[in-house]
Write a protein that binds this DNA or RNA. Structure first.
Lengths: 201, 201, 201, 201
DNA sequence: GATGAATGAGCATTCATTCAT
DNA sequence: CATGAATGAATGCTCATTCAT
């Protein structure tokens, strides 16, 4: 099987290398400053090869973005499932968000800095699917917890704002180098605060 | 008097027109997509005149950014002062943040999307001053409230994350057109949640 | 007046220089082989200036084409007018066509080689107007001569084919260096032949 | 036999398919706009296979061109031979030219639009031979008819211009969609006109 | 013979900025 | 202060062609 796929694997591998180089460039200098030439050089591929794999700079950025989103959503998605009680679920969301940011600094910078960027058109369809896959169970879980009387009765965007908002803001400050404290400690504090903000009276 | 000022006024007016045009362009297409030509055209000034008022694109963006930051910080700064008790202060911060976003959609999009952007070097000095003027009293107020036993004992970044994080996230969703609900209602809900997350046990 | 226009004149002059350089390049190496760089160099203008005057390569080619068409049609248009009898008119058309080709070798090569080329979209509107201005009186003159019983009763395209076809074909051979004879001699022979082919029995 | 030839046949067939695809592309978008990729796609062959059969784009274009020229010249060549009297010969040339164009629209567009194009170097040798084979008997036939006193005493290029010029021009107009009339009717009119233009007094 | 990834030179075009008038 | 022509470096992208499998 490995042999059968060897052709694809090498192609996939190259794609991965290119996406990695692109991510680095995007993070270091932003989408527009990151030229295809710089990416090409860092990925150690020829110009033609680069364009053979990704038809345009936008397509490349979109591919990178989607990979990042998948990784993030996979991590967070694991936090909630039917049987998880509200408090553990909410705190897990916070912990997982901050852990993921901690372990994927580059992706985090790229994703949070570039929400809805120019190149998004190229990702649109794939992204919508990913988002649907992510938000649906999350939204359902909130409904369940609310009906179980564990959390206040709020709209979905408000849950998102109250729970992920603090994570986002803290991550932003941490990524900007504006906070020193250790992150799991912060995760605990934020988790506690967030839980208080949404738990039922 | 009119005669004496006429020169300056017209110059100031032109600067304002240009900044307005620039803001529109930055919001509509982002910093790099917004070319000096497009800004020039929308502002109805000649190329030479544009460069007479703002030496570079970065300088122009920085001027726009700083104006926005001043407006935002002025609004929020008004929420806290020595004598304001924690609950009213925290809820005021939330209310004022959301109100400001509601009333300054374009500025909000520009500021939140472009934190620490390429052109920031050009704003650095002015921005630091503004930030200092904003964060110092805010930080001191938190210390006071903490010492008064009204709020939990947390670091400044955590207060920011827990209080402004939800505002940011909700604003982001609202600006992206992802929420429908009316904003003062949301302000109340978020204010309540945020207050629960930071108030002392 | 000269002083008032001086600004425009210099701009017009530069446009003319660029069009001249472009024409040379297009003739020497064809539309696609002729790079903007080569044109730029031959015209002794900077890249930016070139694009300041002509927004694209197509636009430049279209401008050149239209100038050529105008010149050609102006020459031929002078051959016919209400009072001109058929024989002189037809022979004048032939003579003028061949003379124009003789005197405007480069334009001729460019025009005849590039009928309906890629860049024509950029010229479309202007060209249609020019053509209308040219063909209408010509067509009317044929009708008159036919009604005067001087020429055979044929459709307009057939007049064009029988009269200008031989001119075109001879010009093509001459421009390709495939004929040696002197041109006014050929004009006489072709004029005579063409006249016989359309005159009334 | 089938087995023995199968290899060659399939190879020949593939060449033909490729030439067909190339012709379509050249006609639709011109030589330079037609990329090997587009041709490859339309011919449903792989890139490597395409280059296996035709070493370069020029070679491919030349092959297509020559095939077209052969077809055209074969048709016209049949019109004249020693014993054919002038009038029938001349009218046959006209008729055959227009019929061929009518039946080979794509080839006609390609051939007439691309006379002496960039890629011709690649065809040079073959083309010269073809041309010689075509023009020699034609030229000799004109000499014969002239000596028989049937046609005016003109140089070969003038015969070509007077006889084929109108055909070319009419074809050009027809291919451009600028004439509606039916073609065999036009052939008769043009044949008659052309005959009058060259027949002896 | 077939396949498709790889190559890299080349090109049109953009755009911030300068400068003469 | 205003104007708009001039500048030229920089960039994304194309495409004919090669080559390993």
């Amino acid at each position: 099987m490995r042999t059968l796929n060897s052709h694809n694997s090498s192609s996939e591998a190259k794609r991965a290398v290119i996406i990695g180089a692109a991510l680095e460039c995007f993070v270091e200098m932003g989408f527009t400053q990151a030229t295809m030439e710089k990416i090409r050089e860092r990925a150690c591929v020829s110009n033609g090869s680069l364009y053979h794999h990704f038809g345009s700079k936008e397509e490349l950025a979109a591919a990178a973005y989607i990979e990042g989103v998948k990784s993030y959503q996979k991590r967070l998605g694991g936090a909630v499932s039917s049987k998880v009680p509200a408090e553990s679920g909410v705190k897990a969301l916070v912990r997982r968000h901050l852990n993921w940011v901690h372990e994927n600094k580059a992706w985090a910078v790229f994703l949070f800095r570039t929400r809805r960027a120019e190149f998004m058109k190229a990702a649109e369809r794939n992204l919508s699917e990913e988002n649907a896959r992510f938000f649906k169970p999350l939204s359902e879980w909130f409904v369940e917890r609310k009906e179980a009387g564990e959390i206040r009765d709020l709209s979905f965007p408000l849950y998102m704002a109250l729970i992920l908002g603090p994570c986002q803001e803290y991550s932003r400050l941490w990524l900007a180098g504006a906070v020193n404290g250790n992150m799991s400690r912060a995760a605990a504090e934020i988790g506690e605060g967030v839980w208080r903000s949404v738990k039922a009276d």
